[in-house]
Design a protein around this nucleic acid. Structure first.
Lengths: 141, 141
DNA sequence: CTGATGTACAACCATCGGGTTGTACGTTAG
DNA sequence: CTAACGTACAACCCGATGGTTGTACATCAG
């Protein structure tokens, strides 16, 4: 039960991908217009392979998509992924604004979903306290 | 050259700090209420020192602040830093929307381009020119 | 056909990141 | 005072990252 891994890892990949200036530039460039990998590579002071790796990281994070076209691989930025990242930030901020009661909801599941259906999950134990963080620790030696 | 380093590294630190689930949780926890480091540490399945390091990373990124109080160190989340991160994301998105105004910090694109309707995508292989990227070998033969 | 171009991928290397333990030190509780 | 608590920090693993070079292969230009 440690914070829905899927969404947590998605967020990890997203922010990690954004935590590099080169990659942010690639996103910018490919948002304004498709670019082939070698076109991109020519713009940066590093090897083609290095840029290739950056693109791969961005792709795994969903920030760009690649599409074969002849012998080229066109890279296109994905604005939706940026929105996704923004959403995640907003969620944290919302917690601060007190607009959240189910903290573990945002920590575990990014989908607040429509109605707060009662039959949500089997979780929901410690509502009184917030954030059980990961609620497993304190072992006895 | 290369994208103002100061702000670039700021962004690097911010996103890097956010690229870890434990750290995001710490931000959440400390946004809802101050917590001492050891209080935080008790909530996570890792050593005190590990949590200490996470807090340090968050602090360097400006996402939390520490304040001594007796023998405790109270950690408080900083919502402004989250806003800052959001601003950075919005900048990238704005490029895409063609609302570039201060893109200086992102890329020096002299091509205001035609109607940048959001529904572009099919754009063209814009001449590219100096995206400066990193101001080295970007010459077209 | 041959050659240049664009990709993919493996191997390698140096550094960073996240985690651990251990130690030292100030502060608070008894 | 002494003991427990909260913190800081160093030293140390080890896996992940970011970069390189080198090779292989497909596609496009002549």
């Amino acid at each position: 039960m440690v914070v829905h891994q899927e969404s947590a890892e998605r967020a990890n990949r997203l922010f990690h991908a954004l935590a590099d200036a080169t990659r942010r530039e690639i996103v910018t460039l490919t948002l304004t217009g498709e670019q082939s990998v070698s076109q991109l590579a020519r713009r940066f002071p590093m090897s083609f392979a290095a840029v290739q790796k950056h693109v791969a990281v961005l792709e795994r994070a969903g920030l760009v998509t690649k599409q074969r076209q002849g012998r080229e691989q066109r890279v296109r930025g994905n604005a939706d992924a940026l929105r996704e990242a923004r959403r995640l930030l907003d969620q944290l901020a919302d917690v601060w604004r007190g607009r959240i009661d189910r903290i573990d909801a945002i920590l575990t599941d990014p989908d607040p979903g429509p109605g707060p259906g009662p039959g949500n999950s089997e979780n929901s134990e410690n509502s009184g306290e917030h954030a059980h963080a990961s609620d497993r620790h304190q072992e006895e030696p």
